[in-house]
Amino acid sequence: MDKIIEILEDLVPDEEFAGRTGLVDDGVLQSIVILNLISELDDEFEIDISVGDVVPENFDSVEAIWALVQKYQG
């Protein structure tokens, strides 16, 4: 999960992500951020996130993103 926080903080430098929820409603995840986040997650965790999983529920919090990554790793 720390790795996800690190990736997010790298992509959106002005935001705090530890324990963060409500990422979608707060407008933090602009399309360009989502796009880069997915390619970083794919590379870092050697997964291939399908566009069908690129939905708000899977990106609304750091925990949700972590759960998504684990689903692909499992």
């Binding site: 407008g27 399309s31 566009v51």
Partner: peptide
Amino acid sequence: PPALFSFPVR
């Protein structure tokens, strides 16, 4: 809704 532009299937 602007947020949809981050979630292409939606």
